[in-house]
């Protein structure tokens, strides 16, 4: 392992520059039964999100008189990883479901739909780092597709440190060998950070650089998300 260099003269193993994301593909309205849905791929990480609701709340005691409740369920398909991952919730997925909810909640007008639930289901069907970011990107698109009133989309991307370089969108071998990972979610219109997690050691000054690079990644993803929504809209016009 030590012999492989992940970064050579500013170019990464997969040919990317340090501040470049993997190729992105986003599609909206891919599922028939869900009220809204989306597909989001970044490199080899693929997330599918479906939204059900606003609908009646079960169990009923969770109902809120003045607003909709937002529920998010992040799941990894057992075949999405090299070693089969056991189906069913675990501590990691419970935490990610929660931080995903908190990342999306700020942009939703939940008060418009009292006594209902808006349920977002996220399936990671192929995993190669940054799955929570891909899930959030897909979820934001699926909510927009469902016609839920939103203040803005939410865009999510990670940045980190690999072999002492600050890099955008850590993936593949970098994820295993990288020194630090900082996934964030960004609410572009208000320039608010709605998800922030970090693993790895870093001086505060370098942290700030990584944060700014991650925001740059989110801004790029935001453009791709908007493109996907527009593409969907244009197809409907043509019909």
């Amino acid at each position: 392992m030590e012999d492989i260099k992940l970064i050579k003269s500013g170019i990464r193993l997969d040919g990317r520059k340090l501040d470049e994301t993997r190729p992105i593909e986003a599609k909206v309205g891919i599922l028939k039964r869900a009220n809204g849905s989306a597909y989001f791929r970044i490199g080899n990480t693929i997330a599918i999100a479906g939204v059900m609701g606003p609908r009646r709340v079960y169990p009923k005691h969770m109902e809120q008189a003045d607003r909709a409740i937002l529920r998010t369920d992040y799941r990894m398909a057992p075949f999405s990883t090299t070693d089969r991952s056991r189906p069913g919730p675990n501590r990691r997925s419970t935490e990610i479901s929660m931080v995903t909810r908190k990342a999306i909640e700020p942009v939703l007008f939940l008060e418009e739909f009292p006594k209902t639930s808006i349920d977002v289901f996220i399936e990671i069907i192929q995993a190669d780092a940054s799955t929570r970011c891909a899930g959030i990107n897909a979820a934001a698109l699926a909510l927009a597709d469902a016609g839920i009133p939103m203040r803005d989309l939410v865009s999510s991307c990670s940045a980190g440190i690999v072999e002492n370089h600050v890099v955008l969108d850590v993936a593949g071998k970098e994820d295993m060998e990288g020194e630090l990972d900082l996934p964030i979610a960004f609410y572009p219109k208000k320039k608010q950070i709605t998800l922030l997690q970090m693993d790895g050691i870093v001086p505060p000054e370098q942290f700030k650089k990584i944060l700014h690079l991650a925001i740059k990644g989110c801004e790029k993803i935001y453009e791709e998300q908007k493109k996907a929504l527009r593409a969907r809209y244009q197809i409907e016009l043509a019909e």
Binding site: V99, K102, E105, P106, L182, I193, T194, L195, L196, Q197, M198, D199, G200, I201, V202, P203, P204, F207
Partner: peptide, 10 residues
């Protein structure tokens, strides 16, 4: 040095 972060809240 910083070593971890977690944002919470809505």
């Amino acid at each position: 040095k910083l070593c971890s972060m977690q944002k919470g809240g809505s």
